[in-house]
């Protein structure tokens, strides 16, 4: 239980860096645990732990320097042939609520997991995609902003 919570916190930290949304906003989607357990469910805990460990290493190496952290994320995660595709999946999951089937080359090298196919994590995950607040909008078919709100310029928070 202890480690579960710890790992989840690392996952949250990682997600903040990957998405540029705050941990409050990420938790506010209610999807943190859903995504974490989806990954474990599809490709197993050890792969997840590898990603988290690589992130922890990246953080240690960056030593609080933001630019360096970005660089380290690319070194430890994004350009890593095993962890890169998983990391990109984490990003896409947060933004649109889908798990994407991993690339064929990954599946050939690291195993074709049975549950690894493209799917929507859940109906709620779809509606909680971060893509929509990013562009000052809302997911089609949910969270409607109200009559005639569409006549005004979108409110897009500058980042």
């Amino acid at each position: 239980m202890e480690t579960y919570q710890e790992n989840l916190n690392v996952f949250l930290d990682l997600s903040v860096v990957l998405t540029d949304f705050s941990s409050y906003e990420l938790q506010g989607t209610g999807q943190l645990e859903a995504y974490y357990s989806t990954i474990i469910d599809v490709i197993g805990e050890s792969n997840m732990v590898e990603v988290l460990d690589a992130f922890t290493l990246a953080k240690t190496n960056a030593n609080g320097n933001e630019t360096e952290l970005e660089k380290q994320i690319r070194i430890q995660l994004l350009s890593n042939d095993k962890l890169g595709p998983i990391t990109r999946n984490i990003i896409k999951m947060w933004f649109i609520g889908n798990w994407y089937q991993l690339p064929n080359i990954w599946r050939e090298t690291y195993g074709a997991y049975e549950k690894d196919e493209t799917f929507v994590v859940s109906a709620i995950a779809y509606t909680e995609g971060l893509l929509w607040p990013t562009i000052g909008s809302h997911p089609p078919g949910a969270k409607a902003p109200g009559y005639a709100t569409w006549i005004d310029a979108p409110q897009i928070s500058k980042v």
Binding site: V17, L18, T19, D20, E70, I73, L78, R88, I91, K92, F95, I96, Y100, L131, T134, I135, G136, S137, P154, I156, V159
Partner: peptide, 25 residues
């Protein structure tokens, strides 16, 4: 657009968000 920005344009974080606005809005 999201797939392209993440998988091909190799963006994450802030840059990803800006690119989403640019490409979609």
């Amino acid at each position: 657009n999201l797939e392209d920005i993440v998988d091909n344009k190799n963006k994450f974080g802030k840059e990803l968000r800006n690119e989403l606005v640019h490409q979609i809005s």
